[in-house]
Design a binder for these strands. Sequence first.
DNA 1: GCGCCTTACGAGTCCCGTAATAATA
DNA 2: TATTATTACGGGACTCGTAAGGCGC
Lengths: 292, 292
Amino acid sequence: MNHHEIKNFLAVAETLHFGRASELCHLSPSALTRSIQRLESELGQALFLRDNRQVQLTLAGEKFYQYAQKAVRDWEDICEDLGEDGEVEGVVSLYASVTAVYSILPDLLEAYRALYPKVRLNLRTGAAEESIDKLLAGDIDMAVAALPDRQSDRIDFLPLLTTHLVFVGPRAGGREYAFSDMHELGRLPFVLARSGVSRSRVDQFLRGVGAHAVRITEVSGNEGILAMVRLGCGVGVVPELVLERSPFRDDLVVLDGAPQLEPYVVGLCTTRKNLARASVAAMWQLAQERAQ
Amino acid sequence: MNHHEIKNFLAVAETLHFGRASELCHLSPSALTRSIQRLESELGQALFLRDNRQVQLTLAGEKFYQYAQKAVRDWEDICEDLGEDGEVEGVVSLYASVTAVYSILPDLLEAYRALYPKVRLNLRTGAAEESIDKLLAGDIDMAVAALPDRQSDRIDFLPLLTTHLVFVGPRAGGREYAFSDMHELGRLPFVLARSGVSRSRVDQFLRGVGAHAVRITEVSGNEGILAMVRLGCGVGVVPELVLERSPFRDDLVVLDGAPQLEPYVVGLCTTRKNLARASVAAMWQLAQERAQ
DNA sequence: GCGCCTTACGAGTCCCGTAATAATA
DNA sequence: TATTATTACGGGACTCGTAAGGCGC
């Protein structure tokens, strides 16, 4: 028996609808069905009467509902009790781009540090597009990253802000990089991330207009892209936020007539497993409160 | 978080000794260590202070101890509440030899049926030596079987009674099957189980005296062995209990001077997974009470 | 050196998601 | 036919046991 099963039971008991409840539990309908079946098997009694059109609590289900509510409340109480006064300890390693460290993280980390001074924060900077791999490999506990196009089951994502991907050129050479003729795009020199969301957005866009870029300089990390663009290596694509925060921003310009790409959502990432850790869950909740 | 972790915590908190506690939990020391570590990670605080010579509760550990006791009590209360008045339902399939059905099971099944009338009992008879395979395959939920020589991690065994393996011959031809010369044993015709504990005991014994039986009739099921022995196919080896209960017992004799094999322990078997089911756990507990 | 808790690693089980099935209106 | 709960099945994560490590007596 585990607390997930109890939580799942409560979700079904309160919605009386497996499909709806499965969403609340972040679970597929079949998984929820089996979770309830396990519980019923362990207790030796049916908790719900369900035909395909209706779900309702049995007598045993009513009794168990009383228990389940109290059990969850008690658990939350002890967690709160143990977690108060910044008693939570441990180590949390957080991976983010330099820009994120400058722009998004200061407030969050300050608040976290104030509430949980005993947690040792381990901050690592690097290219945003590598964060998911590092998470999955267990190298880090959390990351600030772009919302992946293909959501993995193992990764939880918490949106923090939305920005745009902008096409950037050097201020001096602004004229030679023009978007007057979409079909000529393939001949422009590009400075792009080696991989990641921003890169796939650009690739997707270019395919959409039938262009095939041949002159691409690949860089790891958005900040590096701007440095290369400033040197005249080509047109870069970065999140607007990165451009605003760049020390090179006065030497760069957003290109006139450039196309609008899909919004770029930046948020906090972690694995499901890590979310069970108090130190990680605390950061998550804090970010959630500040994001809404 | 699951209830096993809480139970494990209680065991450590009450013994203040990981090794001792790991036995109580039926767990290896390393598994228990990790179980406590998971809990601590989830709560964000150390629950025990341990160097290699001493284990003691932290402040958080003391608080959590109060919670854990109550949580386990509450869980047991709800289980008892739901289980009373024979409310437990479900299906339990039980596999046993015919002899077991006649000798061991009547009392147990009667008591079970009286306490849990809603559980549908599914009784299947067959050769004892096949029970473990059927358990592992999931064909059945429980079995009456001999204590396996090599205990599997998946199987739980509850001893019910101990009997002896006896060498049996036909009453009429008792004289031709004699144990006067141990070294001549290999020339005796045997009627043995195809596999299983009784078979391996005999094989082991024969190897021990340097004999190699060449004339073996293999049978599945102890009751069948006696039938073959009665027909004069050779010397059989069966649990004494089976002989006593056999309708052929007047036509058979225990051989004089036959060697004593190791005791043969008969008990109830099931898988760990099945023990989580209320209907199975109830049978287990009932058997436990009657066995002590 | 021995005892005891902990980490490393390989293996097996359990659980989830996808897809197919049943059943109802 | 559309909707909803349930089974079948394959893949992957999690936890276990064995064995090696580390620290204190």
